[in-house]
Computed example of a mutant assay.
Amino acid sequence: MRCVIVVPTYNEAASVGALLDRLADARSAASDASIDVLVVDDSSPDGTGDVVRGHAAYGSWVRLLTRSSKDGLGAAYRAGFAAALDAGYEVVLQMDADGSHPATEIPAMIELLRGQDVVVGSRYVAGGVTENWPLARRLLSWGANVYARRVLGLRTRDATSGFRAWRAAALLAAGAVDSAASGYGFQVENTWRAERAGLRVAEHPITFTERTVGDSKMSASVAREAAVLVLRWRIGELAGRGRVQPGAAPAADPDHQRTERLEEAGRA
Results as ranks from 00 to 15, higher is better:
Glu260Gln: 15
Arg167Ala: 01
Ala265Asn: 08
Arg267Met: 09
Gly183Lys: 02
Ala176Pro: 01
Val188Ile: 15
Val177Gly: 09
Leu238Lys: 14
Arg200Asn: 13
Ala226Ile: 00
Gly236Cys: 09
Ile206Met: 05
Gly198His: 13
Val222Gln: 10
Ala220Thr: 15
Arg258Lys: 15
Gly185Cys: 04
Asn190Phe: 02
Ser221Thr: 11
Gln245Phe: 04
Arg196Cys: 02
His204Cys: 06
Ala170Met: 03
Asn190Ser: 08
Ile235Cys: 06
Val244Asp: 07
Gly242Arg: 07
Ala176Arg: 03
Ala202Asp: 13
Trp233Val: 00
Ala180Glu: 07
Ala165Cys: 06
Pro250Ala: 08
Trp233Thr: 00
Leu229Thr: 06
Ala170Pro: 03
Glu237Thr: 09
Ala248Ser: 12
Gly236Asp: 08
Val228Arg: 10
Pro246Glu: 07
Tyr184Thr: 01
Glu263Trp: 08
Ala223Met: 09
His204Asp: 04
Arg261Asn: 11
Leu262Tyr: 14
Val230Cys: 05
Leu231Met: 09
Met218Trp: 09
Thr207Leu: 04
Asp178Phe: 11
His204Thr: 08
Ala226Asn: 03
Phe208Ala: 01
Ser182Leu: 13
Leu231Val: 13
Arg211Thr: 07
Glu210Lys: 11
Val244Trp: 13
Phe163Lys: 04
Gly214Met: 04
Ile206Ser: 01
Ala239Gly: 01
Arg200Cys: 14
Arg196Met: 12
Val230Lys: 00
Ala252Glu: 13
Ser179Phe: 05
Trp233Gln: 04
Arg193Val: 12
Gly198Glu: 15
Gly183Met: 10
Thr212Asp: 08
Arg193Pro: 10
Pro250Trp: 02
Val228Met: 12
Arg196Gln: 09
Ala268Met: 12
Ala194Met: 13
Leu229Trp: 03
Arg234Cys: 01
Pro205Arg: 02
Ser179Leu: 05
Ala268Glu: 02
Arg243Asn: 11
Ser219Asn: 05
Ala170Leu: 07
Leu231Thr: 12
Gly198Met: 13
Glu264Tyr: 00
Ala220His: 11
Arg241Ala: 13
Ala170Asp: 03
Thr209Pro: 06
Arg167Asn: 06
Gln257His: 01
Val188Tyr: 02
Thr259Val: 12
His204Val: 05
Val228Ile: 14
Ala180Ile: 04
Arg241Asn: 05
Ala197Ser: 14
Ala220Ser: 12
Ala202Trp: 14
Ser221Glu: 07
Ala194Gln: 11
Lys217Thr: 15
Ala165His: 02
Thr191Trp: 00
Val213Thr: 08
Val222Arg: 03
Glu264Asn: 02
Thr259Ala: 14
Glu210Asn: 15
Arg200Tyr: 14
Arg224Lys: 12
Ala202Pro: 04
Tyr184Met: 04
Gln257Ala: 14
Asp215Ser: 11
Val230Pro: 07
Pro254Asp: 10
Val244His: 07
Thr191Phe: 00
Ala220Glu: 14
Glu210His: 10
Ala174Lys: 05
Arg258Glu: 15
Arg200Met: 14
Phe208Tyr: 01
Gln187Glu: 11
Asn190Cys: 09
Glu264Pro: 00
Asp255Met: 06
Glu189Tyr: 03
Phe208Cys: 10
Glu263Val: 12
Lys217Val: 15
Thr259Gly: 05
Thr191Arg: 00
Leu238Tyr: 06
Ala202Ile: 08
Ala174Asp: 03
